[in-house]
Amino acid sequence: MIAITSTGNTLLAGIDKYFARCSYFLLFNETDGSHIFIENNCRTAKENAGLLAVDMLLKKGVRKVISGEFGMKVKSVLDEKKIQMILISDINKTINDIITLLKGK
């Protein structure tokens, strides 16, 4: 399972620059190619939004996360849990572009 941070809940939305404060997470299932959007409820948290988001994603079985940037605290947690972080520097890419790349394997 791969989580992608998204600015909206459509495939045309862009990749969110921030991990924990993103609007939506897109969960992409590598085995059958399906995907769902889930709203990020942790974004309004005053602090430790990243840690809450990681907990939430772990429960969904996420092993890889794609985002524009990760915060300091999140990085160490993700390292600890052995979750692969993928940084996309080109934030003009849409969710659709990434999914095409992922499906094109």
Binding site: K64, I66, K75, S76, L78, D79, K82, I83, Q84, M85, I86, L87, I88, S89, D90, I98, L101, L102, G104, K105
Partner: peptide, 28 residues
Amino acid sequence: DSNWFHCKNCKSHFNNPENHKKLICPVC
């Protein structure tokens, strides 16, 4: 702090927490 890799094809950065020996870009 962790081993970062750069994909020349899709220009993404990623780390390798499971220490795979054969490295391929997780995105493309």
